[in-house]
Design a protein around this nucleic acid. Structure first.
Length: 477
RNA sequence: GGCCUGAUGGCGGAGUGGUGACGCACCGGACUGCAAAUCCGUGAACCCGGGUUCGAUUCCCGGUCAGGCCUCCA
C-alpha cells in the first residue's frame, strides 16, 4: 500500500514519494498570533498533524521533519499592541502560548520546528538580496517588489491566467509596481512599527517572503509537502512558489501542495451558551479536545465541513462508543482473572485494522478510517460477548493502535467517561453510589431512584452492570 | 465582473457506470426494579433539465443554490 495525496498543483491524486525517504519534509502555514484562534484555524492543525502521524508511521518517526510556522510580525499584532499599550512581544507570546496549548488539547503533536518571522529575519533579507541579484526583484520607492514577469510559471499553482485575473480584479494597484501582480518583499515600516535593518533600508518583510525563508531555513528548499488552508492558494502560495523558485533556481519548491477546505459555520446553532463558541479556546472549556479533534476529522479534509453543535455531540458520542468497547473489554479481561498473553486477533479484526490504514493512505479518507474503526470495535465486542479473552485482548490492542495512528483512544477509558472530575467529586459520587447500592440491595426502589436523581443533579449518570454500578459525566447539554 | 469548488437519508459524511458505506438521531423487539449500555431488526437520500450509455447518483453540457479566492482570513 502506498500513500496517495491530492496535489493542488497537478489537480490529481498521486502516489507520494519523498525526495529522500530518510528525510521527509513538510511545511504548513500557521497562525498570526494576535488573538485566540478560531476553530477553523485548527482544521489544518489537526489535518496536517494526522498526515504527520501517517508519515511518521510510514517512514519512521525520526525521518519526518515537520515545520509549522508562526507569524509574529503583522499589522494586526501592531494594532493590538498599540491598543493595549504593550510591546509586540507581549501580544505574540501570550497568544502563541494559548495557541500551542489549544493545539495540544486537540492532541496535535508538536511540530519538529515552529519557526517565527522575528527569528528568521536574516534569512529573509538574504533571500530578498538573492532575488534582486537574480533579477527577479526590483526596488521602488523604498520597497522591494517581486517581479512576476520574471517567472513564466506564475499562476500555475492556482490555475489563474494572469491577464484575466487582473481584468476582473477590483484592487487598486500601487503606482510603483511594474506589473499589477507584483508583490512586496520588503517595505518601510510606518511610525511606531517594529523595523529591521537591511541593505534595502530599514523596514519589515512582506507577507509571502517569510514562509519561503522559514522553509529554507528550517527544512531547506525544495520540500516534499506544503500545506495550508484552501484560501492560501492564491496569492500566498502562488507567491511563495514564485519567490522560492526564482531564489533557488530549483523548480520544485514543494513536490506536493495540500489544501484543506473550510468549516461552514452555521451561526444559528453555534450559540449553545452565549455568543461565539467558535473560538477553539472556548470550545475546549466545554468539550474534550479529543471530541473536537474527531469532529474536525469527520469529513475528508479537502471538503467543506458543516460545523455546528450537533457535529460535536456526534463526535463525542462516537468516541463514547469506542471507549465503551475498550472499557467493557477491560472489565471482561480483568474479570476472567487470567490476563491472556499472546492472544491472536481474528481475520475480521485484522481486515478492519488494515482498512483503517488503507483509508488514511487514500488521501486521508478519515470518514473511511472511522468506519473501519467501528468495524474493528464491533469485532472486539463480539469477542467479549463470546467470552474469548485471547481474541478480545488482541483485538483491543489493534483498536488502540489504529486509533492511536489518528491520535485517538490513547487515554484511559475511565478518564474519558469521568473527565474533568476531581478527587473530591469522585469521592462524593462513590459515597452516593454506595448508599444507592444499599437501597437497591434492600429493594428500596424509591430511595434508589432518589439517589439517582441526586447524582443526576451533579451531572452524573449511573449505569448498573453485572459487576456493580459505573458512572459517567453526562453530556454538557 | 473574473476564476474555482461543492450539492447524497432527520443530521454529519464516504463512495461508486449496474444490490447507495459509516456514525448520530428515529422506530420495533430482547434485556433491565427504573435508566443507561448492549444485542437483533425496520424505515429513510444521490439539487433541476438535457446528453452519452443496455444502464448514471457516478461521465459531459446547461441551470439553480451554497461556499471560497481575486483585499497579508485556515
Amino acid at each position: 500500500m502506498t500513500l496517495k495525496l491530492y496535489d493542488t498543483m497537478t489537480r490529481e491524486k498521486r502516489a507520494f514519494v519523498p525526495r529522500d525517504p530518510e528525510r521527509v519534509t513538510m511545511y504548513v502555514c500557521g497562525p498570526t498570533v494576535y488573538n485566540y484562534a478560531h476553530i477553523g484555524n485548527f482544521r489544518p492543525v489537526v489535518v496536517f498533524d494526522l498526515l504527520y502521524r501517517v508519515l511518521r508511521h510510514a517512514f519512521g518517526p525520526e525521518r519526518v521533519l515537520y515545520a509549522a510556522n508562526v507569524t509574529d510580525v503583522d499589522d494586526k499584532i501592531n494594532r493590538k499592541a498599540a491598543d493595549e499599550g504593550v510591546p509586540i512581544a507581549t501580544i505574540t507570546e501570550r497568544y502563541l502560548a494559548a495557541y500551542n496549548a489549544d493545539a495540544a488539547a486537540l492532541l496535535a503533536l508538536p511540530p519538529t520546528f515552529q519557526p517565527k518571522v522575528t527569528e528568521t529575519m536574516d534569512a529573509i533579507v538574504a533571500m530578498i538580496a538573492q532575488l534582486l541579484q537574480n533579477g527577479a526583484a526590483y526596488a521602488a520607492e523604498g520597497h522591494v517588489l517581486f517581479d512576476t514577469q520574471a517567472y513564466p510559471d506564475y499562476g500555475k499553482l492556482s490555475g489563474r491566467p494572469m491577464d484575466e485575473m487582473i481584468a476582473g480584479a477590483r484592487v487598486d494597484v500601487a503606482p510603483y509596481k511594474r506589473h499589477p501582480a507584483d508583490f512586496v518583499l520588503w517595505k518601510p515600516s510606518k511610525e511606531n512599527e517594529p523595523e529591521w535593518e537591511s541593505p534595502f533600508g530599514p523596514g519589515r518583510p512582506g507577507w509571502h517572503i517569510e514562509c519561503t525563508a522559514m522553509i529554507d531555513q528550517a527544512l531547506g528548499l525544495p520540500i516534499d509537502i506544503h500545506g495550508g488552508g484552501i484560501d492560501l492558494v492564491f496569492p500566498h502560495h502562488e507567491n511563495e512558489r514564485a519567490q522560492g523558485v526564482c531564489a533557488t533556481h530549483d523548480h520544485t519548491y514543494s513536490a506536493f501542495w495540500l489544501h484543506n477546505g473550510f468549516l461552514n459555520m452555521a451561526e444559528e446553532k453555534m450559540s449553545k451558551s452565549v455568543g461565539n463558541v467558535a473560538l477553539a479556546h472556548d470550545l475546549l472549556k466545554e468539550y474534550p479536545g479529543e471530541a473536537l479533534r474527531w469532529a474536525l476529522l469527520a469529513g475528508q479534509y479537502r471538503q467543506p465541513l458543516e460545523w455546528n453543535g450537533e457535529l460535536i455531540d456526534q463526535a463525542r458520542n462516537a468516541l463514547d462508543r469506542l471507549y465503551r468497547v475498550l472499557d467493557d473489554t477491560a472489565r471482561f479481561l480483568s474479570g476472567t482473572g487470567e490476563p491472556p498473553a499472546g492472544g491472536r486477533e481474528t481475520d475480521a479484526m485484522r481486515a478492519a485494522y488494515d482498512a483503517v490504514f488503507a483509508a488514511l493512505e487514500d488521501d486521508l479518507n478519515t470518514p473511511g478510517a472511522f468506519a473501519a474503526l467501528f468495524q474493528l470495535a464491533d469485532q472486539v465486542r463480539a469477542a467479549v460477548m463470546a467470552k474469548n479473552g485471547a481474541q478480545a485482548s488482541a483485538g483491543r490492542d489493534l483498536l488502540v493502535q489504529a486509533g492511536g495512528l489518528m491520535g485517538f483512544l490513547q487515554g484511559d477509558a475511565q478518564a474519558w467517561f469521568q473527565g474533568g472530575a476531581d478527587e473530591a467529586f469522585k469521592a462524593k459520587v462513590e459515597e452516593l453510589l454506595q448508599a444507592r447500592q444499599a437501597a437497591r440491595a434492600a429493594k428500596d426502589w424509591p430511595q434508589a431512584d432518589l439517589i439517582r436523581g441526586e447524582l443526576a443533579a451533579l451531572n452524573v449518570e449511573v449505569m448498573d452492570g453485572p459487576a456493580g454500578a459505573t458512572w459517567r459525566i453526562k453530556d454538557p447539554s
